[in-house]
Design a protein around this nucleic acid. Structure first.
Lengths: 244, 244
DNA sequence: TCAAAAGTGTTTGCAATACACCCATGC
DNA sequence: GCATGGGTGTATTGCAAACACTTTTGA
């Protein structure tokens, strides 16, 4: 049962006050980032509506589901699109500029997710609609403020990657040290010293050295490593510092 | 004019689908932190409604204002309560657990703000309702998930304070080096070395040494400093690092 | 003259940086 | 045998941390 709305402050007008926006349309949008072909890419869907949205690309999004937590609702959006659950995902920011959608008041809560496109082969164009990866520096025209949302996602990634080892979420399960270095260089936008990078990375004790090497390369094959999630959880609890 | 809602993804049901929560109630809440009596405190309002909210304390909050950006709406809530505008404020997180309010689906976008209670003498109990500062480690019983929201605000403050010099927002315009050290010790929850702290702080070139000293203390009076916002903006643009 | 807090430098260890060559493999 | 990327160690520098005594002032 819906009870009276909560005007929990003296200066806040009741919900039927005309100065208050009555239940603005609330949506979810997901900035899904992947690392493909040595490029950071974002997954977009084609929007074939009319008017403001005509033939434009957009972030995959949806609505809050009844009786389901906000975060879980975002996960459902993501899983419906990619077919993968339990991806790295976190809330990014709520966007609510008054004019972000022209036709009506709309507020969106943006999430960002990291995925390894190599590991999870996404079925593109579910139900006949276009779904495509775009290089983050070659974005098409987007609806609403979705360009701004993507930039916020990238900014968050660049910040977060220096605080916690989340880069691994973008790589396949087994990877070489050079692969992860190229990934970090791409995200940070600058070159890193090979020896220093490896030294720091290995000293963190987050990598498991596998008894396996690269296959099918036309030069010396590199050793493969995997990310040790258990040790990561343990070290994190102890307050370890993962700065790169 | 309201046009059709945007179901911008193949797997997202239209808004009248029964699995979708029809326009959940959207609110704003503000975690307003201040530093008083060598303690971190949060500003709460007393809620004298019935039922779930009966006689409980709550974060000051409100609704999104018609035609006004989300951030600006939060600022209005803050200004209505404190009488001060242009405080340091940023979005914290959107809280949307399905059961966070028992009676109906409600999502809140939380902001957090920093204020110097010494500098701005707040009029408490505007329009006869209780408004009070509480030590963050002696919180009263709160409605809904407001305790969780406050903890998120504190966590953000502790993180942010190590990345940017936002501590000054909690101090009066003129302060002593010991005052700011005590503030940082309180926020971080550990003691800091006086000499090292001063060395680092002064090397940042963010403080203006004033020709003024403390008044009315029963011991050697300390020099007063002020925060140099202009130089901060300039250094920030140049990519300076403010870690403490 | 005592109490209370202000103010001030040096030493030490560690972590970040800079830097160049040999190795293994496929073609 | 050559081209391609894989893999490795050391020297230097700068920053963080540890640490104790003198100064000023009011009561």
């Amino acid at each position: 049962m819906i009870t009276k709305p909560n005007h929990h402050l003296q200066n806040i007008p009741p919900l039927d006050d005309e100065r208050v926006d009555e239940r603005p349309l609330l949506t979810l949008d997901c900035v899904i980032l992947g690392f493909r072909a040595a490029q950071l890419q974002v997954l977009l869907v084609k929007w074939d509506a009319e008017g403001e949205e005509a033939e434009r690309w957009a972030l995959p999004g949806g609505y809050v589901k009844k009786g389901i937590d906000l975060d879980a609702s975002a996960n459902i959006v993501l899983e419906n699109l990619t077919g993968v659950s339990n991806l790295y995902m976190e809330q990014l920011h709520a966007f609510g500029a008054a004019n972000r959608v022209l036709s009506h008041r709309a507020i969106t809560i943006a999430y960002y997710a990291l995925i390894s496109p190599e590991q999870y082969h996404l079925r593109p164009g579910v139900k006949g609609r276009d779904v495509k990866w775009f290089n983050v520096d070659e974005l098409p025209e987007l609806i609403y403020d979705h360009h701004e949302i993507i930039q916020a996602g990238l900014k968050r990634l660049r910040k977060k990657v220096r605080e916690e080892p989340i880069g691994f979420e973008l790589l396949p399960e087994k990877f070489t040290l050079t692969q992860i270095q190229v990934l970090y260089e791409t995200i940070l936008g600058r070159e890193l010293d090979k020896r220093n990078f490896r030294k720091k990375l290995l000293k963190m004790n987050l990598l498991t050295r596998l008894d396996e090497i690269q296959q099918g390369v036309a030069h010396r094959a590199a050793r493969l490593y995997s990310f040790d999630k258990d040790n990561y959880s343990r070290l994190k609890k102890e307050g370890f510092n993962f700065d790169l």
